[in-house]
Measured scan of single mutants.
Amino acid sequence: TEYKLVVVGAGGVGKSALTIQLIQNHFVDEYDPTIEDSYRKQVVIDGETCLLDILDTAGQEEYSAMRDQYMRTGEGFLCVFAINNTKSFEDIHQYREQIKRVKDSDDVPMVLVGNKCDLAARTVESRQAQDLARSYGIPYIETSAKTRQGVEDAFYTLVREIRQH
């Protein structure tokens, strides 16, 4: 089974770092803004072998026109913010609204991801993020692309959301 996953969120929150940590098991430290990259990885989730087709997208506003296209083809979405960047957390709402509009559905598989949880300088409390996820009816997972904490959990949870859909 193949799953088309799309990673969305503001610029600099760590979308590529999360994806590369999942696929290649290493942490990319330097920031190089993405336009669009796709990665494929075969994994076993709950005993089922599946192929993850992951689209890593641009957070930069100037590429926002490309969003409709990949939102149409994606089956599930990782909505990523950084726990030390309140603005990126506030941006999640717009991504969710755009996904709902493009998919013409209120019920699209999504996982809210709070990345950079290895950093002490948190400005978005776990509780705020949990409340937001609960209001959307989606899971919330904290990750660190640096330490790998929660990385597999985030992507695998999204696959489970798609399966249950």
Rank of each mutant, 00 (worst) to 15 (best):
T1G: 08
T1P: 13
E2I: 08
E2W: 04
E2V: 04
E2L: 07
E2C: 05
Y3M: 15
Y3K: 08
K4V: 06
L5G: 01
L5W: 00
V6F: 07
V6H: 02
V8R: 02
G9E: 05
A10F: 12
G11I: 15
G11R: 14
G11L: 14
G12H: 15
V13C: 14
V13I: 09
V13W: 01
G14K: 00
G14M: 00
S16M: 05
A17R: 02
T19Q: 12
T19W: 03
I20M: 04
Q21A: 15
Q21W: 15
L22G: 10
L22T: 13
Q24K: 06
Q24V: 15
N25K: 14
H26P: 02
H26W: 15
H26R: 05
H26Q: 09
H26Y: 14
V28E: 11
D29Y: 07
D29K: 09
D29R: 08
E30C: 10
P33E: 09
P33Q: 06
P33F: 05
P33I: 04
T34W: 03
T34A: 03
I35G: 01
I35L: 13
I35D: 02
I35R: 06
I35Y: 11
E36G: 04
E36V: 02
D37V: 02
D37A: 02
D37N: 02
S38P: 03
S38W: 01
R40T: 11
R40C: 11
K41E: 05
Q42E: 13
Q42I: 08
Q42A: 12
Q42D: 12
V43T: 12
V43H: 14
V44G: 12
V44N: 11
V44H: 13
V44S: 11
I45N: 09
D46Y: 12
G47P: 08
T49L: 10
T49A: 09
L51R: 05
L52H: 07
L52F: 10
D53G: 04
I54E: 00
L55Y: 04
A58H: 01
G59C: 03
G59R: 04
Q60M: 14
Q60W: 14
Q60E: 15
E62F: 15
E62A: 04
Y63K: 06
S64H: 14
A65E: 03
M66H: 05
R67G: 09
R67A: 11
R67S: 14
Q69W: 14
Y70F: 13
Y70L: 15
Y70H: 02
Y70R: 02
R72V: 03
T73H: 13
G74P: 03
E75K: 04
G76L: 13
F77V: 03
L78Q: 08
C79I: 15
V80Q: 01
V80A: 05
V80R: 00
F81T: 05
F81A: 05
F81C: 14
A82R: 02
I83V: 14
N84A: 15
N85M: 03
T86P: 14
S88P: 06
S88E: 11
F89Q: 13
F89A: 11
E90F: 10
D91P: 06
D91V: 13
I92N: 02
I92V: 11
Q94E: 08
Y95P: 02
Y95K: 10
Y95R: 09
Y95E: 04
E97A: 12
Q98D: 14
Q98F: 13
I99P: 02
I99C: 07
K100T: 09
R101D: 02
R101N: 04
R101M: 04
V102S: 11
S105M: 12
S105E: 07
S105V: 15
D106C: 06
D106T: 08
D107Q: 06
D107G: 10
P109G: 02
M110K: 00
V111A: 05
V111L: 08
L112E: 03
L112G: 02
L112M: 14
V113E: 00
V113T: 03
V113R: 01
G114D: 01
G114M: 07
N115Y: 00
N115T: 14
N115C: 15
K116G: 15
C117R: 06
D118A: 02
L119D: 15
A120H: 12
A120Q: 06
A120T: 07
A120D: 11
A120I: 07
A121N: 10
R122M: 10
R122E: 12
T123K: 07
T123D: 14
T123P: 14
E125T: 11
E125G: 09
E125H: 07
E125V: 10
E125N: 12
S126G: 11
S126F: 14
S126K: 10
R127Q: 12
Q128E: 10
A129G: 15
Q130C: 09
Q130V: 09
D131P: 03
D131R: 11
D131C: 09
D131F: 13
L132Y: 05
L132A: 10
A133Y: 02
A133H: 03
R134A: 13
R134P: 01
R134G: 06
S135V: 10
S135M: 13
S135N: 09
Y136W: 10
Y136I: 10
Y136M: 14
Y136L: 14
G137F: 03
Y140L: 09
I141R: 05
I141Q: 06
E142G: 04
E142F: 01
T143C: 14
S144H: 10
A145L: 02
A145N: 13
A145R: 00
K146M: 14
K146N: 15
T147R: 08
T147W: 08
R148D: 14
Q149T: 07
G150D: 11
V151W: 04
E152D: 08
E152V: 10
E152F: 10
Y156S: 15
Y156K: 06
Y156C: 12
T157E: 07
T157K: 10
T157I: 06
L158A: 05
L158W: 08
L158E: 00
L158N: 00
V159Q: 02
R160K: 13
I162G: 02
I162P: 00
I162W: 03
R163P: 04
H165P: 13
H165F: 12
